[in-house]
Structure formats: C-alpha cells, structure tokens
C-alpha cells in the first residue's frame, strides 16, 4: 500500500511539473492542432506556429488529432470550452472537418487552416496552403530531366482521402505524360507511410526489377522506397519525394534521394499566426480566405541552404 501511495504521489508530481504553465500577461490562448508529430513535417509546422504565437505574446497549446476526425472534434470542443482566442489547424479530412470549424466559428473562434484545405469556403478565417500543383509540376520536370526523358518509373501516391495526394499526382502526370517514352509500370498508394512504402517497394521490385525511377507523393514514402531500393542493391534508381523534410535533405546531400519539392511550412505557419494576431488586434481579416504559397525545388545544388522547412539565414551557396 505504501508503495502504491508513493507511486501516486510521484505520478502527480510528474504531471504537474510537465504542465507548469504560467498564464500571466498573455494576450490569450491559441490552439495549434495538427496530425501526429511522428511525421517531422507536422512537428515542424506546429513548432514554428507555437514559437511565432509565443513571440507575439500568446499562450499556446499544441495538440494532435492523429488524423481521427472525431478526436479533432473533441479537441475543438475542448478549445472552445477553454476559451481559446484562435485555432491554427492542419485538419483531419476535407469533408469531416467542416462541422468542427463551423462549431468554432459559431462560438466566435476563428480557425486558420494551414497545409490542407477543407471542402467549403466561408467557414474558416483563412486557408493557407502550399501550391502543391506548382510544386509537383516542378519536381516532375526535374524528374523527367534526370530520367533523360525516357524509361520506366513507379509512382507511390498518398492517402486516397487526402486532396493533396490527388493534386500532387495530377501535377506529376500533367508534366510526365507529355513525354511518350516515359512509362509508368506501377502505381499504388502507400498512405504517406514509410513502412508501407518500404513494403510496397519491395513487392513492386519483384515484378519490376529494372525500374529506372520512383516518384513519391511525400518524403516519408520516398525514404521508405529508397531504403527498399538500397536493400535490393539498386542504388542508381532515381527517387524523388515531396515536402522537403530534413531527412530527405540529408539524403540529397549524401547523394541518395535526388530531389524533393520543399513546402514553405515555416512561411505558412508564420503567416497563419500573424493573420490570427491581426484579426484579434484589429477585428477584421487581413487577407482573403484562400491563399497559396509556392514550393521550392531542392536538389544537390541547393540542399545545404535549407533546414526545418525554411531557408537557412546567411547561407547562399553550397560550395
């Protein structure tokens, strides 16, 4: 019994020390809701938004919905009950998110969407996304260039329920399909997931051992595919991803993955927080709802100039 009491006390201490937040002189609470931080893309996105909001004098809470729309709804209700001033959201599904954002709006809390859009306009305060189509076309053009306009390739697409998966695939194909000697020999979804991409790539290699290139809907899948290719001794296969995560940038520097489309995550997160601040200070919206920010192509020539989804200050060349 004594031991269990001790355990309870220790747990209480741990919990309370983790949660020691001082609310003094804050301009209010901003909730940052994103998918799980186990993908560094979302981790950086949340981190940057939190840093910016705290710099502007807000208290913040950074929570994750794990791509579960019901959990996202619960987080919204908690944020409303807690009296949050604004919500920065990377959502859990274009259709399934509408009611949650509407609920916040009804409670007088503006939601600033980042990275992913929702299927309706006029509910969110802003929808700031990277220009996925422009980014994908850019990656595809470089892909075609390295492939020397001919040969077989495999495409790994993102989760079917995610609009970005389709937009990126469309962007790839609008460019690549112009070249009649480029042949797609397999296409499948790996659900944005590294392990799944690894397994799918291994399976696809059995059927298509001579593949020349692999183009992926995001960086985690590109890393999974690259690992499978390396394990099979096919280090020359051209692999490209999308997102611009630090892991892939490192791989580009090491001569592994060839290129990725860097999403301006830092710029998006900062824009969302600044616009939230503008609204909370001035009572009106700074910009129109739908906004997009262009992506940047990262390859061996400029990989060392970027980290954490943003240009590194003061680094202007890789020499």
């Amino acid at each position: 019994m004594k031991k269990s009491l001790l355990f309870i006390v220790v747990l209480a201490l741990v919990l309370s020390s983790v949660a020691a937040v001082s609310a003094a002189e804050s301009k209010g609470l901003i909730y940052v809701i994103t998918p799980s931080h186990s993908n560094p893309f979302f981790g950086s996105e949340a981190e940057i938004a939190v840093a910016k909001a705290e710099e502007l004098g807000y208290t913040t809470k950074s929570v994750v919905h794990d791509d579960d729309a019901n959990k996202q709804m619960e987080l919204f209700e908690t944020a409303i009950a807690e009296g949050a001033k604004a919500i920065i959201l990377d959502n859990a599904g274009a259709d399934a998110t509408v009611s949650a954002v509407q609920k916040a709006k009804d409670a007088g809390i503006p939601t600033f969407l980042i990275d992913r859009e929702i299927s309706e306009e006029g509910i969110a305060a802003a929808q700031i996304v990277s220009n996925n189509y422009q980014g994908a076309s850019m990656v595809a053009e470089y892909f075609v260039e390295l492939m020397e306009e001919e040969g077989t390739y495999i495409e790994l697409t993102g989760r079917d329920t995610d609009t970005n998966a389709h937009v990126r695939s469309q962007g790839y194909h609008d460019v690549i399909d112009e070249y009649t000697d480029m042949k797609m020999i397999a296409q499948d979804t790996a659900n944005w997931d590294q392990t799944e991409a690894f397994e799918k790539m291994e399976t696809m290699l059995q059927a298509n051992p001579d593949v020349k290139g692999v183009i992926c809907g995001n960086d985690t899948m590109a890393l999974g595919a690259k690992a499978a290719l390396d394990a099979a001794g096919k280090k020359d296969v051209i692999v490209m991803g999308f997102d611009g995560s630090d892991d892939v940038i490192q791989s580009i520097k090491d001569g592994g993955i060839k290129a990725t489309g860097l999403q301006p995550v830092a710029a998006i997160s900062i824009a969302a927080v600044e616009q939230a601040d503008y609204y909370l200070t001035n009572g009106k919206f700074e910009k129109e709802e739908k906004q997009s920010i262009d992506c940047v192509l990262i390859n061996a020539e400029n990989a060392c100039m970027y980290a954490k989804f943003a240009p590194i200050e003061g680094v202007t060349s890789c020499d």
């Binding site: 747990l11 983790v18 949660a19 809470k61 929570v63 994750v64 807690e82």
Partner: peptide, 27 residues
C-alpha cells in the same frame, strides 16, 4: 485524455500517462 490536452502535455507524454494509469489500475 481531455485533462492532459488542457494541461498542455505533449501528445507523446499523454500516451505515456494513459499507459501508466491503465497498468497501474490492473496492478
């Protein structure tokens, strides 16, 4: 779950806390 969110505990620590509580209860 809700309390940990409101306390601002990171999602990874939330999982740890939930796991501890469940196992503790079974002990």
């Amino acid at each position: 779950s809700d309390g940990l969110v409101m306390a601002g505990v990171s999602s990874f620590w939330q999982q740890v806390a939930k796991g501890i509580v469940i196992v503790f209860a079974v002990i």
